[in-house]
Design a protein around this nucleic acid. Structure first.
Lengths: 147, 147
DNA sequence: TGACAATTATTAGTATAACAAATATAAGCA
DNA sequence: TGCTTATATTTGTTATACTAATAATTGTCA
C-alpha cells in the first residue's frame, strides 16, 4: 500500500493538467480564437524557432510526427502557417507562420497570458521554482535514456 | 513579457502530464492489460466508492457525464463493471466492479504501482508535499466558485 | 392533484489528438 | 550503383472532450 501514493500523484497531475487545458480551451472558445490549445502552442513554438525543421519542432511541442503533421494541416487550412523546403536537406521542411498568423499571435497573446494567470494565484515565487524543478525531474525520469 | 512565464508553466504542466500518461499507457500495452489509463482510473475509483452514483463518480474521475458514460460502456463491454439501479432514486445509477474486474484490479495494481514509481525518482518527501499542494492550489484556482 | 421545472443518465454527432503501419522522397555511404 | 537510414506524410483506428438533444424520473408549487 506504500506505493499507492504514486498512483495518486499521477492522478492529481493528470487531473490538474486537464483542468488547466480545459480552462484555457473554454476561454479560447468564448473569445472566438478559433484555435485549440495545442494549435496555439504549436504556433508559438514555430514562431519562436523559425529556423528549425518539422521534426525538431514536433519534439519541442512534445508531439509525435503524425500528430504534429495534422496540427500543422489545421493551421495551414486556417491560413496561419505554411510549409517550405529546407535549404540544404530536401527531406526536411521548414515551417513559417504567415503574416495573418503573426497578426493573430500578437492579437491574442496578451489575452492568453491573462487567462493563464488565473491558474497561478495564491502561489509564491518559491512555489513556481519548485513547480518547474519537480515537473522537469518527472519529465526527465521518463525520458528514454539513449538519446 | 512578464506574463509570458505563465504560458510556460502551463506548457510544462501539460507536457509532463502527457508524458506520465504515455509512459503508463505504453506499460499497460506491453503487459497486455487491455485498459487505457483513464479506464484504469475509473475502475479504481468505482471500486473504492461503491455506494456512489454515476454522477458523483464521474466528478471524482474528473470527467463529464457523456465521457464517463462512454468509459463505463467500454468497461462493461470488457466485463469489468456493471450498472445497477439506485435504491431510492430511479434516475440515478450505481456502478459496481464485477468479480472479473476485482480479480483484474488485484492482479495489475501492484504492477501499475511499480511503473508509476519510475516517474517519482530523485524527489524528496518534501517535494511530494509541495507537488500535491501546488497542484491542488492550481486546481482549486480554476474551480467554479458557486458550487 | 396536475402542470411545469429540475435532475440524472444516455445517445448521437463532431473534433481533436494519440498511436501504429505503410508509403514516398531524399540523403548517406559502402 | 545499391542498400540503409532519415524525414515527412498518409491512412486507419481508437479514445476522449464537448455540445445538443432526448428519455426517464423526481421535486415543486399553485
Amino acid at each position: 500500500m506504500l506505493k499507492e501514493k504514486y498512483n495518486q500523484y499521477s492522478f492529481i497531475l493528470d487531473r490538474t493538467a486537464r483542468r488547466v487545458k480545459q480552462f484555457a480551451q473554454t476561454a479560447f472558445a468564448q473569445n472566438n480564437f478559433d484555435l485549440t490549445v495545442d494549435q496555439w502552442t504549436a504556433m508559438r513554438i514555430i514562431h519562436e524557432n523559425s529556423a528549425m525543421t518539422n521534426k525538431e519542432l514536433a519534439e519541442l511541442c512534445g508531439k509525435d510526427q503524425p500528430t504534429f503533421t495534422r496540427i500543422i494541416d489545421l493551421l495551414i487550412k486556417k491560413g496561419l502557417a505554411e510549409r517550405a523546403v529546407h535549404p540544404s536537406d530536401r527531406r526536411c521542411l521548414t515551417l513559417r507562420i504567415t503574416e495573418n498568423g503573426v497578426t493573430k499571435i500578437n492579437q491574442i497573446a496578451p489575452k492568453v497570458a491573462e487567462f493563464r494567470m488565473q491558474a497561478w494565484q495564491n502561489l509564491s515565487e518559491e512555489d513556481f521554482k519548485d513547480f518547474v524543478r519537480i515537473l522537469d525531474t518527472i519529465y526527465t525520469n521518463l525520458t528514454i535514456k539513449d538519446e
